[in-house]
Computed example of a mutant assay.
Amino acid sequence: MRGTDLALSALVIGLILLSLAAGRSFLPPAALWQALSAGPSDGGLLIWGLRLPRVLTALAVGAALGLSGAVFQSLLRNPLASPDLIGITQGAALGAVAALLAGGTTAGLRFDTVAGAWAGGLAATALIFALSTSRRSGTEPRRMVLYGIGCGVTSAAGVEMLILRAGDGAAGQAMVWLAGSLNGVGWPEAALAMGAALPLGVAVLLGHRALDRMELGDDLARALGIRVAVLRPLLIVAAALLASGAVAITGPLAFVAFVAGPMARGLHRRGGPELIGAALIGAALVLGADLAARLVAPAAVLPAGLYTAVIGAPWLIGLLLGRIRRGTL
């Protein structure tokens, strides 16, 4: 692990400890260590029952979103091709909301919610790639971004239609979930987030070498021994599942997947994909956003998605302005 990744790891560890200590009741280091040592049944309920599952969920969801964004941006060689900009997140949200409302309530996380999000995310991915791929020119990244925006708008309209047809209670809870939040997250959500993110994340990290070669172009990647026709669909499916699973657990967290990959490249000062760095930055963004949600306005309990949008929207505007100045947009 390089120095930049070590620094990012230290940042994530620091945010984890701060998230465990901070809240309406701030725990100094000695009290935090005592609560961690005490366990869930002996005075450590605040940490073990409330804060620790929330922190682990934020860690898994952020890493999953960072990895997913880095894979899509690298495969399509386009910084705009992240799942939250090309409609995959919105497709996952449509599937998750459909599953939530079909169950009659949005209280608590069920596995069918995750299955619905996975189905919606994969369906959106398949549709976008089918529309933007031709036999003559292959997959066109710009075309994919445009089709993805259209797919995202259509999926968002589908979500609104489902909510309008739902009862007041279920619709209100669905709207809160769509804002992106870790409020109410417990051990079931943490276990599901870690259980989904770890195997998919490991699979993506194992494909780092192939992803690095494919970023140079399909012909050169094939010349270097990379089985592009096999590995590209596998990486795309894994990245779509990572993003969709994260959406199912916390709701959409805007711009995390979009920002993490380019930030990692900038910090490492190289052109290739930085998957570990993207995962660490994604985790840090979600941990920081949730920490801000709990500390900046604790009475209002603003969603973490609001704070990720505050970071990501200016980044998107800056990226677009830079590409306009260089004549690449």
Rank of each mutant, 00 (worst) to 15 (best):
D5E: 14
L6W: 12
L8F: 03
A10G: 13
L11S: 07
G14C: 09
L18I: 13
A22Y: 02
A22S: 15
A31H: 08
W33Y: 09
L36I: 06
D42Y: 14
L45R: 10
L45M: 13
L46M: 00
R54S: 01
V55G: 01
V55K: 01
A58W: 01
G62F: 15
G66P: 05
L67C: 00
S74H: 03
L75F: 01
L75K: 00
N78T: 04
A81N: 10
D84G: 07
L85S: 02
G87H: 01
T89I: 09
A99W: 01
A102N: 12
T106Q: 06
F111R: 11
F111K: 13
D112I: 11
A119R: 09
L127N: 01
S132N: 08
R136P: 05
G138F: 05
Y147V: 13
Y147N: 09
I149V: 13
G152Q: 06
A157G: 07
A157T: 05
I163M: 15
I163E: 09
R165N: 13
G167D: 14
G167M: 10
G169Q: 14
A170V: 02
A179D: 12
L182I: 02
W187E: 10
P188V: 02
P188L: 02
A193Y: 04
M194G: 15
V202L: 15
H208D: 11
H208S: 15
A210F: 15
D219R: 07
L220G: 11
G225S: 06
G225K: 03
V230S: 14
L234P: 03
A239S: 02
A240Y: 06
A246Y: 05
F255T: 12
G261V: 11
L267C: 06
R270C: 08
A278L: 02
A279V: 02
I281Q: 03
G282K: 04
A284V: 08
L285I: 14
A293S: 14
V296R: 00
P298H: 09
P298C: 13
A299L: 13
T308C: 08
V310C: 11
L316P: 00
I317T: 07
G322W: 05
R325N: 11
R325V: 04
G327H: 13
T328N: 12
